[in-house]
Design a protein around this nucleic acid. Structure first.
Lengths: 261, 261
DNA sequence: TCAAGATTATCATATAATAATAAATTCGCA
DNA sequence: TGCGAATTTATTATTATATGATAATCTTGA
C-alpha cells in the first residue's frame, strides 16, 4: 500500500466510535512504521483534513466542513433538491422528514434532509450516513433503478438474500413508480419514496418522506404518495433542464494547444 | 509539486463558481500533463472525493458529505455547541441566527449555526464558509484570543491594516469579554459574540448571535449580550469537563511492542 | 459508420515515499 | 524549575512509486 491509499486509510480510521487517534495507534492499526504515519499525518493536518486534538491525539479536521459547503452549493441534486424538500414538508401537513438519497459506494446515502417544524422524531437516514441497500423504501427505490450490471454485482456480494423475491419486489416498484414501507429501518416509522432518475446524467436518487406509521390513515397515505411522486418528478424535470442547459460553469480546456492530447 | 499536494491541488480547483472541471482543464490550470491528472482523478473518484458529472466533467464527490457527518458527530466543539445554539435561539425571542465559529487556515469559519424559526435573513457567516479575520464581531473575538505569536504573524501578512488601532480594539474585547458590531459584514445586521477558549485543548472559538440591528433597543441588546456571554461560558465549561474526562474514545497504541518506537 | 474526444495502458526515468535510527522538542509531574 | 517519558521531527540509504510522453483503447455523437 502506498501513495494516495496511505492518506485514505488514515482518514478511514476515524469514525463515530473511534474519533481520536494517536499516531502510534494509527501505525499499529495500519501495520506501517510510525515514522511514515507521522509524515502522512503532517500532510493531512497541513491540508486541514486532520487536526490536533488534546495531547497526542488527532481528529478529523475542518477542511471537510469547507468542502461539504462547497458541495451543498454546487451539487445539482442538492441544489435543486433542497427547495423541493422544503415544499414537501410544508405541504405534508403531518410531522415528517423529507429527504433525498443516492447511491454511494455500495450503499445508499442521504444527501439532504428537512424536517417539518413540529417533528418529534428523526429517522436513521440522516445526511451523510451510509445505509443498507436492501431495506427501507428509500433504498429499495434506488436499488430498483440501478443499472442492471451494477445490480447483479451487488446481489452476488450480498449473501443470504432471496434474489428472486427481491427482483420481483423491485420490478413491482418500477411498475408502480413508488415504494412504501413501514418499520423496515425504524420501528413505527413509515417511508414513502419515489425515484429521481437521470440516466444520461448518471443520477440515481430517491426522494422520501418519513412519518409515523400510526398517524397515517389510508387517505393520508394516498395523498402523501401523490405528493412524493409529484415532487420527485418535478425534481427530475428540473435536473433534466439544468443538465440540458449545459453545465453552465464547466471548466474546459481551451485555446492553447496544451497537452490534453 | 507531487505526492499529496497533487491530490490537494485538484480538489482545491473546485469552488462555488467553478464546480465542474474536465481533466484537460485541470491539467491546464495545474500545469501538469493530462495523463498525470487522469491518474489522480481516478484515485479521487475511487475514494468518493470526486465523481463524474455530465460528459467529461467531474465534480466534488459524496465522500465529503460522509466525513462531514462523522465530524458533526464527533467534533467536541460541534457536539457540545449545537444544543447551546439551540437554547440561545429559543431564548433570544427575536428573529436571529446563533452560530459557532473557529480559527481555520488564516481565516474564521463557522462550524455550526441555527436560525430561530421566524428568521427572514441569513448572515454571510454560514457553516463551512471561510470569513475574513478582521471584520465582524465573530472574527474579532477569535482574533482577540489568538496566541500572540500567531496573531503577530497574521498582522505582518495583512497589509493595509492599522495594527495599533486593532490591538487596542482587541485588548478592549478581551477586557469586556464580548464584542458587538453592526453592519461590518452584512448591511443592517448586528453581531454579538463571546469567546469560547480552552487554551489547553487548543480550542479558540466564538459564539455569536446575529439579528437585525434596527430591531434591538438598548435593553434588548444588553439582554442578548448577557445571553451570548452566558451561553459561551456554559459551553466552555462543558468542553472543559469533556476534555478533563479524558478523550473517552482515543485510540492509543497498547500491548504488543509494535513498531511505534 | 466514422471521427473526435476522452480515458486507460505502457514503460523508461527520475523522483519522492519508505523505514530505521537518531535527534530534538514538548509535556506532565514533582 | 528541571527531570524523564512520550511525542514529533530530522536524516539518510534504499526502494518503490509517481511521472510524463506516447500509443492504444474506449465512448459518444453526428
Amino acid at each position: 500500500m502506498a501513495g494516495f491509499s496511505r492518506f485514505l486509510s488514515v482518514l478511514r480510521l476515524f469514525n463515530e466510535a473511534e474519533s481520536a487517534w494517536t499516531v502510534p495507534a494509527m501505525a499499529d492499526a495500519m501495520g506501517v512504521p510510525a515514522s511514515t504515519v507521522y509524515r502522512t499525518v503532517r500532510d493531512l493536518v497541513a491540508a486541514g483534513f486532520l487536526e490536533q486534538a488534546t495531547e497526542a491525539a488527532y481528529r478529523l479536521g475542518p477542511a471537510f466542513i469547507e468542502f461539504d459547503r462547497s458541495l451543498r452549493l454546487t451539487d445539482p441534486l442538492v441544489v435543486a433538491g433542497r427547495p423541493v424538500l422544503h415544499d414537501v414538508v410544508m405541504q405534508a401537513h403531518v410531522p415528517c422528514v423529507a429527504m433525498l438519497a443516492r447511491f454511494y459506494n455500495g450503499a445508499v446515502m442521504c444527501v439532504a434532509d428537512e424536517a417539518a417544524a413540529d417533528t418529534p422524531f428523526r429517522p436513521s437516514y440522516e445526511r451523510g450516513r451510509p445505509m443498507p441497500l436492501t431495506r427501507g423504501s428509500t433504498s429499495k427505490v434506488i436499488l430498483a433503478h440501478l443499472p442492471t450490471r451494477q445490480f447483479n454485482k451487488l446481489v452476488e456480494n450480498h449473501e443470504g438474500l432471496d434474489a428472486a423475491a427481491l427482483r420481483a419486489e423491485l420490478a413491482d416498484i418500477r411498475k408502480r413508480g413508488f415504494c412504501s414501507t413501514a418499520s423496515e429501518i425504524d420501528q413505527g416509522l413509515a417511508g414513502i419514496s419515489a425515484p429521481v432518475i437521470l440516466k444520461d446524467a448518471g443520477i440515481v436518487a430517491s426522494l422520501s418522506l418519513v412519518a409515523h406509521d400510526a398517524a397515517l390513515d389510508e387517505g393520508q397515505r394516498r395523498r402523501l404518495i401523490l405528493l412524493v411522486v409529484s415532487a420527485a418528478s418535478l425534481l427530475a424535470e428540473d435536473l433534466r433542464r439544468r443538465h440540458q442547459a449545459g453545465g453552465s460553469n464547466i471548466r474546459k480546456a481551451m485555446g492553447e494547444p496544451g497537452n490534453g492530447k
